[in-house]
Amino acid sequence: MHIVDGALTTEVLLIGAALTGLGLMQGLRSMPLEKIPATGMLAATFFVASLIHVPLGPSSVHLIMNGVAGILLGWAAVPALFVGLLLQAIFFGYGGITVLGVNACNIALPAVLVYYLIRPFIVRASVRQQFIFGAFGGGLAVAGSTLMVAASLWFSGEEFIPAAKLVLVSHIPVIFIEALLSGATLYLVAKVKPELFMGRSW
């Protein structure tokens, strides 16, 4: 999921950085005091989850958990995921600094999209339904990210369909695993800390 430095054109890097900058501004400006611990917690979850790679055939895949971050945080997911990506780039060399804007955009924007699509249903859902909506949101966020990664590569000159196929196919297991984990996480949140779903996060 992390695109590395040097793989994209300057135009794509600049557009990604600009979109992430706007997302960060929106996320920071509207982050309520009460959401800060949850934002930190989800940034840490993303930071660790992305480090756990599951070997799969010739390659490996890793968890992202951007769906959960999006549903619980809304726009505040952008700074949370950005910080996670920044620390991964600095500490582990995943992705890179110049491509950070694009990577953040690819991972955080689907999270915000899931927030708008799923959140209205989640706040009204029963505890069991939370699992289904959470799973759907988790899977959708990863699928959105894979398409955005493919689009970034496409705008940088690679053929969209092969790139999208390659990224999407390698992430199909992640979509399912992520859906299950996201559903379970939101089910747990609904059981033990339902106030996280209360109120608007933006």
């Binding site: 982050m31 309520p32 005091l33 800060i36 611990p37 934002t39 930190g40 940034a43 840490a44 930071f47 660790v48 480090l51 910080v83 996670g84 620390l87 991964q88 500490f91 582990f92």
Partner: peptide, 21 residues
């Protein structure tokens, strides 16, 4: 290294609290 990353996140949470407050 991983705990160091967590520490940075914790520090940023503190900073966020300061500005939000």
């Amino acid at each position: 290294t991983i705990l160091g990353g967590m520490g940075y996140i914790l520090g940023l949470v503190g900073l966020g609290y300061y500005f939000a407050a």
